[in-house]
Design a protein around this nucleic acid. Structure first.
Lengths: 304, 304
DNA sequence: AAATTTTAATCCGATTTACCGATTATCATA
DNA sequence: TATGATAATCGGTAAATCGGATTAAAATTT
C-alpha cells in the first residue's frame, strides 16, 4: 500500500482549483505561497502524475487533475462532516446546516421553516441561500451548501434526493376575462399575449408550461418577470393571466389583486418539490429530519 | 473551520478497531505501539470526544467511536481510490478489483468471466472471493472487497447495485417421478420428503421457495445440502427433486444424472442477479464495465 | 503469594517534516 | 527598458512525528 496524500495537501489543491492562483489560494489556506507550491508538487510526486500544466507564468489543471480535485472534494467534505459529527458528540441535530432554495419556493417556506426548526431543534442553525437551480447545484458540489430545496423533475447529477411533496399549479386570470375561460381552463379563449411568464432561468416556467400542456406560444406575452410577485403585479395590471403555484396563492400572493385562481387543463398540473443532498454525505439523518419539517409545509405532502 | 484530523491517525483508528489491540494494530500499521497510542489520543483531542473507553487493561469503542470508525473508513477508502486512480494515470481499467461472489453463482461464472476480463481489459486484475452474502457484505463494508455478485432481492444496506440479469429456476426431478408431475409442475404430486434444499444460509433456498410458491413443507426432505453439486447428487441418488438455477443446468450440472428439468409453478420462478458496490466509491465506471461483462454471461441479461 | 506476562500510557531524545521569508526566473505589460 | 505579477527554489527554523525505554496496572502462571 503506497502512502496516502495528506488532507492538507489535498485542501491546497482544492483551494488552488477554486482560486486559480497560487497566491490567493495560499492566502485562503492561511499559508505562504511557497508552502502551497511545494504542497502541490509533493502531491504530484506522491500520486505519480501531473495535476497541473505549468507554462511558466500561469497554469492549467490537467484532465486527471480535475478528476482528482473532484474526488479530493469528497474526501475533504467527508472529513469535515466527521469532525462536525464528533464535535457535536454524536448529536446530529446541532450545528450549522446550509440550505439552498430556489426563488419560486423560498418566500413561501423560509418563514415557517425557520420557526419550526428553531422550535423543534434549537441547536440546529439553519442557514439559507436563495439562488437558481444551477448555481445551487454548483454550491452543493463545492461543499458550500449541504442541501437544496428544488422543483422536480430536474437533473440532480450525482446527488440523491427525497421527494417531499407536490405543489399544484393554478392558472390565475384577471377577473375581466376569468369567466370566459371555464374550468379546466380552455387556453383558446385567452387573448393573444395575455399569458405572462417568469424568465426562462426559473424552472417554474418550464414546469408549468409542460405540466399544463400549453402549446400555443402566441398566447404568451414576451415580457417576462423575474419574481413571482412582479409576475402577479404584471398580470393584474395588464388584465392578463399567468401560472401560479398553490403555495404562493396560499401565502396570499393574490391578495389585493383582481386575479382569480382557476383549474388549468393538463392532466397533472403540479410540480414536485424535492430535497437534494450529496450522495456521499454522512449527515443523511440530519437532513431527513429537515426534510420532514419542510414536507409538512407543502400543499401536498408525499414524503414516505 | 477547525483543523482536520490526519489520515494517518484515522487509519490508526481503523486498525485498532479491526485488531482490537494496540500492539497488533501498531504492527499492522508498521509503527510502534507508542506512536499508535499517541495517535489515538491526538485524534480524541482534535475531535473533542472520547472514542474508546479505557478500563485500565483493555478498552472498548464508545458508541460515537464506532460511528467515527464507520465514517473514517469511507474517507480512507476514498483516498485509496484517489491514489489508485492517479497512479493508473486516469486509466480506470487497470489495477486490482476484488469481486466477491456467492457459492450458488460462482462456479458458473468465474471461468468465463476471468477469461473475458483478461481478454478485454488485460491490465485489470480481477481477484475473486467466494462466501455467503452476509460475509461478503461485511467485507464490502470493511473495504476488503470492491464489488459483490449477489442474488436479489436482498437487503444491501447502504450500498448501491445494478441488476444484471435473471436466472430462472427449474424444478429438476428424477426421471422415475418426472412424468407424473406435469408442466408447470403440480407440487401435490411429489411424494412427501422428496424435495431436497440447500441449507438455509444459502439465499437460493429462500428465493426458490418463495418464487415458486412452495408452501407445503411436508414435501421437503429435512436433510439439506451445502452445495449445488451435492444437492444434485442427493436428489439423483434418492430419486427426489430439487430447485436448480438455469445457470447451473446450462453448465452441465445435470450431466450423468437421471434428473430432468421441469418448469416449476409460481408466476416468476427466477432470481435476479445484481452487482453491489459501496455508495461512496469513485470507481463506479470501472465496476460498470465489469457489470457489463458479467451480464453477458447470465441466462437473461437485463442490464440497462 | 510471588513471579511473569500482557497491555496501554508516558516520557524523552532523535529525526523528519512543514513552514516561512527571501530570492530567482519567467513572462506580460507599461 | 523598466515594472509588475507569478510560480519555483533555497535555506534556516519551528513543529510534528516517531521509536525505544520505562512505567503502571491487570491477568496469568508458577
Amino acid at each position: 500500500m503506497g502512502k496516502l496524500p495528506s488532507l492538507k495537501n489535498l485542501s491546497y489543491l482544492l483551494a488552488l482549483h477554486q482560486q486559480q492562483n497560487f497566491n490567493r489560494a495560499a492566502a485562503a489556506c492561511n499559508v505562504s505561497q511557497s508552502t502551497l507550491s511545494s504542497g502541490i508538487q509533493n502531491l504530484e510526486e506522491q500520486l505519480g502524475c501531473q495535476l497541473i500544466e505549468r507554462d511558466h507564468k500561469s497554469f492549467l489543471f490537467t484532465a486527471i487533475g480535475e478528476e482528482i480535485v473532484e474526488q479530493a472534494r469528497n474526501i475533504i467534505t467527508s472529513t469535515e462532516e466527521l469532525v462536525h459529527y464528533a464535535k457535536g458528540h454524536g448529536n446530529i441535530l446541532e450545528g450549522p446546516v446550509r440550505l439552498g432554495i430556489i426563488p419560486t419556493i423560498a418566500p413561501f417556506v423560509v418563514g415557517a421553516l425557520s420557526k419550526r426548526v428553531q422550535q423543534n431543534y434549537p441547536k440546529l442553525s439553519l442557514q439559507l441561500a436563495e439562488d437558481t437551480t444551477n448555481n445551487l447545484l454548483n454550491a452543493l458540489r463545492d461543499g458550500d451548501l449541504d442541501i437544496l430545496l428544488l422543483a422536480l423533475p430536474m437533473d440532480i447529477q450525482g446527488n440523491q434526493k427525497w421527494t417531499l411533496g407536490r405543489d399544484p399549479f393554478k392558472l390565475v386570470a384577471h377577473k375581466s376575462i376569468a369567466d370566459k375561460l371555464g374550468e379546466p381552463v380552455d387556453y383558446d379563449m385567452l387573448p393573444d399575449g395575455s399569458i405572462f411568464l417568469l424568465e426562462k432561468e426559473h424552472c417554474l416556467t418550464g414546469h408549468a408550461v409542460s405540466a399544463c400542456q400549453l402549446t400555443d406560444t402566441v398566447k404568451v406575452n414576451p415580457f417576462t418577470a423575474t419574481s413571482l410577485h412582479s409576475l402577479v403585479q404584471m398580470a393584474d395590471a395588464r388584465g392578463g393571466a399567468t401560472f401560479m403555484s398553490q403555495m404562493a396563492i396560499d401565502h396570499g400572493i393574490l391578495d389585493n389583486t383582481d386575479l382569480i385562481p382557476l383549474k388549468p387543463s393538463g392532466q397533472e398540473a403540479s410540480r414536485d418539490i424535492g430535497l437534494v443532498y450529496r450522495a456521499t454525505t454522512s449527515r443523511r439523518q440530519t437532513f431527513r429530519k429537515i426534510a420532514e419539517e419542510i414536507a409538512t409545509l407543502l400543499p401536498i405532502n408525499t414524503l414516505s
